[in-house]
Design a protein around this nucleic acid. Sequence first.
DNA 1: CTTTGCATTAACCAAATGGTTAAACATTTC
DNA 2: GAAATGTTTAACCATTTGGTTAATGCAAAG
Lengths: 202, 202
Amino acid sequence: MQTTNTTEQQIIEAARKIFMQRGLSGARMQDIADEAGINKAMLHYYYRSKEKLFEIVFGEAVQMLLGRVNAIFAGDMPWKEKIVAAVDNYITSISENPYLPLFVLHEINQNPDRMVQQFLHGPLFPNLRAFMLELAMEAEKGNIRKVDPLQLMISIISMCVFPFAAKPLLTGVFQMDPARFKTFIEERKKFVSSFVLHALEP
Amino acid sequence: MQTTNTTEQQIIEAARKIFMQRGLSGARMQDIADEAGINKAMLHYYYRSKEKLFEIVFGEAVQMLLGRVNAIFAGDMPWKEKIVAAVDNYITSISENPYLPLFVLHEINQNPDRMVQQFLHGPLFPNLRAFMLELAMEAEKGNIRKVDPLQLMISIISMCVFPFAAKPLLTGVFQMDPARFKTFIEERKKFVSSFVLHALEP
DNA sequence: CTTTGCATTAACCAAATGGTTAAACATTTC
DNA sequence: GAAATGTTTAACCATTTGGTTAATGCAAAG
């Protein structure tokens, strides 16, 4: 990745930073311009309106958050390894974008219709669905305890995502400093996958 | 609870509704006034400023979300029953306030310092801490698998809270209608507690 | 009845905010 | 090198928004 970006890219990066931190209604066009080191009029020159700019940032964010979860289940590993890899991979990728989950969650709540747009683009997580089917079959064969795959799936995602969405709350309640939180997240990778695998034992 | 409230109460209720849905920066004083069926000036007459009004609503919300989790672990039941009761209780209480988790999470992220204020009031979840200690002791005795109590605690909370924070996303991705979501939540009570208990088996 | 003190409102205000414009500046084209 | 095209800026504009004010309504106290 180049450090010298075009103005357009600089704007998107600045917009991403501001929107992610403050949300659509909390973000100020002036702040985005300042962050990008340019004049406010430039934002409108390249991206017409705040709404348009937001849609781009939001769309990319949804892709990052949801696209990845599907991709993780793409391989043809055994299901146990798939769970371990998925958890590890997902927590790692969110670590690099800690604001992402809450940003997406909050904005979807503000305007659920925006999601509809997003889902028209691609198919609905074929890998994830295939994986859930695989789990159901393993349960049938008696290799794992019989659980609702949807409940399981959402539990896994919950355990990976929630700590980031609740970071300031957790560090506050349990008095973790930033370093402690980092090790907590690192340890969490192992914890979640082993927790899930144990829970699935017949 | 009376249906005929004082103006002050009407304002708080209206503010709660608007703030919870739109957040601090997204809420408009005019909308709160309309919701309460009164003049905008009344808001300032009773609560000086938007910020002051928000702090009241936010404080109550934190209390609802965090205060309860501590209270649930108060009794002297065996730890297994405590987990079952806590999960059931917590999911039920959030069902009645589905906007609550995301609202609190989002606003804490916007301004983490606000939390500090909240924690100065009471002690830091003595029951929750006691329960975590109890789990550690059970692990020592070999009655449950040895796990980090903090990781476990946060996992339980994650699994209870996240589905509500992500409701529109989940209903979108997994194409649930409102009724389906309701049964999903109802089933979740049993799923989560049994999932956790299985995961804790030595 | 009138005075007093609180409750309520319409009209108003200043600052913030998303967006526009016309001119200056830079780069490419011929 | 001048015309044309694209980029950037300062100044400006209209609307929104949190907040104020002065006048009105109104119930209780005297």
